[in-house]
Design a binder for these strands. Structure first.
Lengths: 224, 224
DNA sequence: GATGAGTTTGATAAAACTGTGAAATCCGTA
DNA sequence: TACGGATTTCACAGTTTTATCAAACTCATC
């Protein structure tokens, strides 16, 4: 699964976090930078950044200067965040090949929509959200599971658990690891809880339930 | 998705914001300019402006003069805002190829209706102004919804919500994401708010209400 | 095959979540 | 300002899901 990396550049940590949250929630991987300088450095050192979202106003090196620097190396799409629409800025930006402007304050809708529009324009598509193994197909985005093409109903936890199994296909998973990943890392409950869920999963998977194998004294493994 | 860009020219920021808000809400992208001079400059520098809405009374270069300048370059439709209908002005305007007049004060309905009429006349159609799924048809520009051809009345929020569902057809939407997208990103309200709106939507959609599926412990999904 | 630790299973209790109606609040308009 | 519709909040009932427990069962080993 190829992640789409987006770099968010803003000197205000809060704004960075805000933008990051929306993007992460929409399935993107976010890299942060606190000013133009850091942005440039990280852009050079990290491969495959698909998009940069940058604030105009920043200390050290402002958004336009940073864009200009980056443009010398790459045609990576750049979205500029501006405090308010101001003419000379936009002209400057378009000259630099800024792809989009988002005026603060913005709604997440706008943000994600613009990001998607820009990525679409540059032919970068969202990573595949499907996992498959032995006729069991999980569609993350639709939150649905099919077994041999027939949809089955899973509860939230069952879904998470099955997904964890299939993503870690062929790997022996100790109970503790399952607890830490499917449940919360600070989950204090009984390890037997997993067993109960495994039981239900096996039942719902029918024949294919046997793909979830018990490893005695250790945990479980999903294997076709 | 190609956005239709409309330039709004008025020296009063409040009036500009008002007009902008209505247009943005109707799905247009708005570019602002504070007087005739700025309007001309921006029209030259920004590509694909589909329509200009301009106040007559402005400092520096008034609406008519700006129109005359722009007409030398382009036949872009122009709607003129006037304080009150006055005949000599209108004559002047029609000579310049002004497409429409709107007399202040105006209702948002009038504004959007005129805009759409003008765009229709010039064969510029709103991109993706219609969405359909399972017999539910949403007309973004008319802000109307039909179920099996019969129009139903939805409130603003209900409309937004339904639209969000249908645009994201088949995608499992966590509550949080719905809140962030249909409401604002800084919305801190009660999570039950969504439920209430979903309830109303389901009721108004009749049979088709069941297309909005509950995903336990997660959120909702629209699926036919 | 007896043994004991580990696992499955079903029953049941506990927790979490959703649907709903009604009340409160907000907002634009008359 | 009063009104009416839209929106939000709230409390609670009804469900679904999840956790826990204990008894039955399995497995590896002796």
């Amino acid at each position: 699964m190829e992640d789409i990396k987006i770099m968010v550049v803003d000197d205000e940590p809060r704004m960075r976090k805000l933008v990051k949250d929306y993007l992460v929630r929409s399935g993107y991987t976010v890299i942060e930078a606190k000013d133009g300088e850091e942005a440039f450095d990280r852009f050079v050192s990290i491969k495959n950044i698909s998009l940069i979202i940058m604030d105009v106003m920043m200390p050290n090196m402002d958004g336009y200067e940073a864009s200009a620097q980056i443009r010398k190396l790459s045609q990576v799409p750049i979205i500029m965040l501006t405090a308010k629409s101001s003419e000379p800025d936009e002209l400057k930006g378009f000259a630099l090949g800024i792809d989009e402007y988002i005026t603060k304050p913005f709604s997440p809708k706008i943000l994600v929509a613009r990001v998607e529009a820009v990525l679409r324009r540059s032919n970068i598509s969202q990573a595949e959200s499907r996992v498959e193994a032995g006729g069991i197909c999980i569609d993350l985005s639709a939150h649905s599971v099919t077994v041999d093409g027939k949809e089955i109903e899973l509860s939230y936890k069952e879904f998470e658990l099955l997904n964890y199994f299939i993503v870690n296909q062929g790997v022996a998973l100790p109970r503790e690891r399952i607890l830490n990943n499917v449940w919360n890392y600070d989950y204090f409950g009984d390890a037997r809880t997993i067993d109960t869920h495994v039981k239900k999963l096996r039942a719902k998977l029918g024949d294919k339930g046997s793909y979830i194998k018990t490893i005695w004294g250790f945990g479980y493994k999903f294997e076709v």
